[in-house]
Structures are given as structure tokens and as C-alpha cells.
Design a protein around this nucleic acid. Structure first.
Lengths: 344, 344
DNA sequence: TATTTACTCGAAAACGTTTTCGCAAATAAA
DNA sequence: TTTATTTGCGAAAACGTTTTCGAGTAAATA
């Protein structure tokens, strides 16, 4: 009745050996249907639940995966977690969530933890500070499968599930130019994150083709909200001459909007904004925000799928997997063409 | 070098016993400083990381807690996770995240899992379907500490960290009446969730005092987005006579706004909206959304704090803890008084 | 010198599983 | 009947720790 009955006591109760009980519970062919039934019933009756640590220790499998994220209060990552969970839940896997808070040191410590055998695999979206993949390589050296999602690391042989960042950067630029922008900028949060760089490069390529690229076409801001805010204030001021912004990640878009509201800068008249973001509130913002919406759920789901493929068959080679799931540009008011706008 | 060295091999390398190495690593007083240093160095050099399952098995402590949530793509829960993580991270605890997706059956299965000894404690925000606490009581019977946060269960002796829902329900009603609403309704997602009921009761009490309460002052909608959407469409149609809505949770607010935009219903002229929500985008919505903002981060943090208090000293009695952290009403445009509004 | 006392360390028994192997008994084949 | 084969089960050895207890040595006290 009350707490913590183990397999030994269950065996004693049934007048069977521990081995037999264990096998019966795992539905082994070695055990007759009759005794299997008895064991199951007794287990139910005595409220027996196997100890997962003992099991993990013996089997060298934890039925647990780690998900390492920069943060969780970001719609993209929330949706990705949902995608991951949709697969992990079905497979009976447990989800250990770790937050790096965009700090490389944290990420390293977390990855270190994952080497201990606590988890069977790792899904990771790297921090904006991460420029070195040694920690990940050590993980792989311990034969722990790793799948990058969204925020990958370029110089490493590993499975990755990402979106078509370069093309989307281009699409953003083209969209802005088409709608009358003369001086658009791309606002990045990292000079090392591939998602930022590829988006920026796609963006730049279009500007170059139009002969309007210059060194300030790509700007960088801090991940710290306060600092980011200050930098944004400068950028959006009318003196800057900038008439459109592409925000590299969701948090930046939020801050740009908040700052514009505060400073009374009109979108899209004074400034056009297009955001890489999965914000659900995009259509009801003031004004509705044009987004490049990543397939966050699908990315998480796919990443989990290939991770499990690798966990389940050890011969499966992860390293070759590179999955690209395209994003969608959703046009809304924040980038609308303004007819009677006098040039800046 | 490569993979998986255990304490036995480390001991052999050092010419020491397993016991000594183990104690040295845990900084036991029994071991001399000299050998401690040697052990630490060797551990570092050989890249030794102790196996957590073996340790958990032996110590009957997993250094892991479970966080059970209805969903994660909700700002409240994301922030709560941050709060929880801020404490758990410091203490070196691991976070196992489970999603019930608002289904009681899921929740039950998850709680069942937690009984196995996998976790040292449980933080839970119950699903909207949950009306029975037997599963939680079984958990407590196994001596696993449980702390409810936000979405508690009333008929159970357990620690809880919540916000002042009743007063906020009142505040919402008063705010709406003050700003000219004649027929406000409260839009709930559950007739069992205390957070919904208390908010609704506070709301009702004010309407009763004003003699304008009637049976349709509290309305219920489904948690399923599609169904919710249809129900909202009816409610906000001008024929309904309703001129203000209090949304019980964030997701409902989202759908109300989306539907209003779609149906071209003007906020606050045609309909005032006030939302129980921690949406960061509230101030930049169209129009800015008046919210009752819960201290999500603090609730998560406090819940984690008292959970650890109970985990760390087994004599600490959780059952008596009831912590109430107040929410804040933040007035924005969506509930603004409309001067020249002809009565409906 | 004899006896405590403190200081380091090691042997071995847990913790609760899973799995290998072997052993009977029962059945099938020869 | 003898020889294989199958079926159902149990003993015991892992898995990698932590912890109890005792033992040996060196230092301190009597």
C-alpha cells in the first residue's frame, strides 16, 4: 500500500524469482502468459513502479533527452519545445530543459552535465555568444547524439534542422525595397550565429545588387534588453536616415516596436519593420507586423525525430543530416508602401 | 581519453580505493587535503564525470524536479519556468518538463511517472479538466513534495503559490464599470479551475452589488482554439449586447483580439477588453491591451523556493504554505472610456 | 611504556534493476 | 526407449555509485 515497493518484495509476494518478475514486466518471451498475467496483476495491486535510476544504470539508457535553449520566454522556443515534446511524449521519453540565457559559459556547463550519461541525446540551439564548438565535440566523442535546431554551429559535423535563412534575408530585403525603402538595415544580435549571419548575408546580397549596400547596412545590438533598447533608440531616430529595419530575432522586434511607440515613430510611415518571428500577436499589433515566420513546431519536431532515429539505431549516422524547412514571409501593415511619403 | 571512465578506473589509476576517491570527490573530512587534490586533478585529467543514475540510485535523491504544465506556449508559463529555473539552476537541480495539454488523462499519467522516484519534488499547475486530486494525493502519500503554482487544486492540503484572483476579478469589474460598461461578461475556460472561478466570483460580486449580474455574466468557452473561436464570435457580435469582456487567461485574450480584428469590431468603442495575461506585447497591440498582469516569474520562483525548502529539510511541513503574490492591473486603451458612445 | 585520540584510508554492503546462463521438466523426434 | 528440442524459470553477476564500519598509523596523553 504505502510507498516504495520494489521488485524484490513483489517477487516475494508472488513466490517467484526477481528475474522472472522482471522479465514478465517487460513482456519477455521466456515467461508464460499465465505468470505474466499474475505478475501484472500483483504489480497493479501493490502499486509497484520500477525505479528508473536502477533501470537506467543497468541498461545504460535513460529514456531522457536534454533540450538546451538560450531562453524559453520566446515564442519560437516555446513552439519548438511543443514540437519536441510531441515526439518525445509518444516515445515515452523525458525532457530535461536547460537554459543558457545566451551565455557561453552556461552552455558549456550544461553540455558538460550531459556527458555524464544522464541523457541519451541532446537537442541544442546555441547561445548568441557561442563561437567555439569544443564542448559539443566532446559530447559527440562520448557517443552522445546531438542535433542542432535553428541556431546551429557551422564548423561541426552534426545533424541540423534549420530554416532557409539566406533566402529569407533576401526576401526581406526585396520586400522592403519593393515597398519603397531606400535605407533599410538589418539588426543582428550576434556576429557569430549562423542564423543571424545568413539572414544578414541574404539581406546584403540584395542591397549590393541594388548598389545601396554600405557598412552600416548591418547593425549589431546587445542581447541585454536595456542595452538593446538604447541602441535601438539611436537607430530609429529620424536623424539616422534609416527607413526600414529587419529584426533578426523576435526579442529585437518587440523592442523596436516598444521603442517606436514610446518615441512616437510611425510604422510604416517613418519606419518599416519586418521581423524574423513567430509571434502569435503579429496580426493584432499596432500596426500588424510583417513577419518571416519560422516553422518552429516543425523544426522542433523534426529535430526530435532524427535524434530518436540516431538513439534507436546506433548505426544510423547523424552527421549527414541537414534538414531545411522553409519559413514564410507574411505581409502585413508594418511594411506597407507609403504613397505620399516625402523622401527623407 | 575517450568515453566513459568510471570511479573504479579512476581509483585504479590513482592507486587508491574506490571509497577514498568517492569521498575525495565529495570533499569529505575523512580525506587529507593532499589526496583530495590528487584525486581532483586526476578526475579532471581523465575527464571523469560521475554517473548520475548510480548516484541517484544509491542516494535515493535525483537532484531533479518535475514541472507539470498545461502548455508552454503561453507567456505566463514561460516566465514561470524562468522563475523556477532561476532557483533550480543555482541549487544544481535539473528540470524535467511535462505538458498535460490541458488533458486530465495526460496529467494523471505524468503524475504517475513522478511516483517512481525519478524526481525529488513536483511543481504543478493543473489542467483545466482536472476536478479530482487523487493522483496528487497518491504522490504525497509517497512522500514526494508537491507545490501548486497558479493553477491550484482547492480540496487538498498542499503548498500553493498563487495570486490574488478574487480581488483582481473585482478590480476588473470595477474598472470596466467605471469606464462606462453596462454589460460586461467574464469569459472562463473552466468551471473547476480555482483561478477561473475566483476571478469570476470577484467579478460577479461587483456586478451583484451594482444589481447588474445575470446568469450570462459568466460565460464558458472551450480550450480548443477552433471551438473557442466560434464561441467568441457569438459573444462579441453586436446582437449579444455585451460591451466588455474579461478574459480569464491569455489564450482567450488572443482569440478575442484576433476575432475582433477579423469581424471589424472596434476596441474599446464596440467592446472593451481586459485580460488576465502577462503578454509582453500588450502595450503594442492594436489597441494597447489593459491587463491584469500576474507576477509569473515570481510565482515560479517562490514555488521553487518552498519546494526546495521541503526537499532539503524533510521535517519542513509544506502543507501549511499558502503564498499569495498580488497581480497588477495595468490600464491601457482597450478599456478606455468612450465619450460619444450611443448606448446599445 | 602504555593508552588514547585523531587522522587516513579500504573492504564490502547496499541501492533496484536487467540480463546471461544454466537447469530442470516437458514435449517432440528418432 | 533414447536423444533432441523447447519451454519456463531462477541464481548470480553486472551497472556505478555512496556509506558504514573497521583497521592501521601517527601523534598526543598519561
Amino acid at each position: 500500500m504505502a510507498g516504495k515497493i520494489n521488485i524484490k518484495e513483489l517477487a516475494k509476494y508472488l513466490n517467484l524469482s526477481i528475474a522472472t518478475v522482471s522479465k514478465a514486466l517487460r513482456d519477455s518471451y521466456e515467461i508464460s502468459e499465465q505468470t505474466k498475467k499474475k505478475v501484472l496483476e500483483a504489480a497493479e495491486k501493490l502499486n509497484y513502479t520500477p525505479n528508473p535510476h536502477a533501470s537506467s544504470l543497468r541498461k545504460r539508457k535513460s529514456k531522457t533527452i536534454a533540450v538546451i535553449l538560450p531562453e524559453v520566454a520566446d515564442n519560437f522556443f516555446s513552439l519548438a519545445i511543443n514540437g519536441i515534446q510531441s515526439i518525445a511524449g509518444d516515445k515515452g521519453y523525458h525532457l530535461l530543459i536547460y537554459l543558457s540565457h545566451e551565455k557561453f559559459e552556461n552552455e558549456k556547463a550544461i553540455v558538460e552535465e550531459c556527458k555524464s550519461g544522464r541523457v541519451d541525446g541532446v537537442l541544442i540551439s546555441i547561445s548568441s555568444e557561442t563561437t567555439d564548438a569544443e564542448h559539443i565535440k566532446k559530447l559527440q566523442a562520448e557517443n552522445i547524439p546531438v542535433v542542432f535546431f535553428d541556431r546551429e554551429f557551422e564548423n561541426i559535423k552534426a545533424a541540423k534542422v534549420i530554416t532557409n535563412d539566406y533566402e529569407c534575408g533576401q526576401a526581406a530585403a526585396e520586400h522592403l525595397l519593393k515597398n519603397g525603402s531606400k535605407h533599410p538595415v538589418f539588426l543582428s544580435i550576434s556576429s557569430s550565429l549562423p542564423i543571424c549571419n545568413k539572414r544578414a548575408e541574404g539581406f546584403s546580397s540584395v542591397l549590393i545588387n541594388h548598389g545601396i549596400f554600405h557598412k552600416d547596412s548591418i547593425l549589431y545590438c546587445d542581447v541585454d534588453t536595456e542595452k538593446m533598447r538604447k541602441q535601438i533608440k539611436k537607430i530609429i531616430s529620424k536623424e539616422s536616415g534609416i527607413d526600414a529595419i529587419v529584426t533578426s530575432v523576435e526579442r529585437v522586434a518587440m523592442q523596436v516596436y516598444l521603442t517606436c511607440h514610446e518615441k512616437n515613430i510611425k510604422i510604416p510611415e517613418d519606419l518599416k519593420v519586418i521581423a524574423f518571428s513567430t509571434l502569435e500577436t503579429a496580426p493584432i499589433l499596432s500596426p500588424p507586423l510583417t513577419t518571416i515566420t519560422q516553422p518552429a513546431f516543425e523544426i522542433g519536431k523534426k529535430a526530435a525525430e532524427i535524434l530518436f532515429k540516431s538513439i534507436e539505431k546506433s548505426n544510423y549516422d547523424l552527421a549527414s543530416d541537414l534538414i531545411i524547412i522553409p519559413s514564410k514571409l507574411i505581409e502585413r501593415t508594418s511594411t506597407k508602401k507609403v504613397r505620399n511619403k516625402q523622401s527623407a
